[in-house]
């Protein structure tokens, strides 16, 4: 069983989550929300805040369940369905609490919080944590940095798409253009950060 305290380099995990193993552009997870919510900047900021929060919290709650219940009883094959159940119920719970106590935050997050329950980037980060055997602190750091990387790319792409809309370019409007922007961003990210290793 991995330790609670970090055994891996936390800075390395942070840089891996944000840049070198970016969930959107290098691992291609969470592309559905990337395409749907990068039309304007405010919704992309709301979505990436919600994703960062849920990725961090999902890492916090799934690690003990995996290492204290699933692994001792030899039930690792149940990890996917177990994690989906945990994330969905957790997001519902958070939605209730935020709606009751922080109505302003609830309104600004809006529809994005329930959407995240089926976001593949969130499931991806907890499965990667289990696969890589990260320590407790390490997996939380990896989850939060993955969310920050997600937010960075959402911000970049929404800026570019807003600029394209302002210029009134119709040639590859809509989703085709968004896929083209995603492909070129991914080309640049893979090329630049592919070489950086520790």
């Amino acid at each position: 069983m991995p330790a609670l305290l970090p055994t891996e380099n936390l800075l390395e995990l942070l840089i891996a989550g944000i840049f070198t193993k970016n969930f959107l552009l290098v691992m291609f997870l969470g592309l559905c929300s990337f395409l749907g919510l990068t039309k304007d900047m405010s919704s992309s900021i709301g979505m990436s805040m919600a994703v960062t929060f849920v990725m961090g919290m999902a890492s916090i709650i799934t690690w003990p369940i995996f290492h204290f219940i699933l692994v001792p009883f030899g039930l690792e094959f149940l990890q996917t369905i177990c994690f989906i159940l945990l994330i969905a119920s957790f997001v519902q719970l958070v939605e209730f609490i935020i709606r009751k106590h922080q109505p302003a935050l609830y309104r600004s997050l809006g529809i994005y919080l329930p959407l995240i329950t089926t976001n593949c980037a969130v499931l991806g980060v907890v499965l990667l944590n289990a696969q890589q055997n990260y320590s407790y602190v390490g997996s939380v750091v990896y989850g939060i940095s993955g969310g920050l990387g997600f937010g960075l790319v959402m911000l970049l792409a929404s800026g570019i798409r807003e600029k394209l809309l302002q210029r009134g370019v119709d040639m590859f409007g809509g989703f085709t253009g968004a896929f083209l922007v995603a492909a070129l961003l991914s080309l640049i990210f893979v090329n630049y950060f592919g070489v950086i290793q520790f």
Partner: peptide, 13 residues
Amino acid sequence: FAKHAFGGLGHTI
């Protein structure tokens, strides 16, 4: 993919 897909001269990203 870099010039004309984005709208040609002056529109490149």
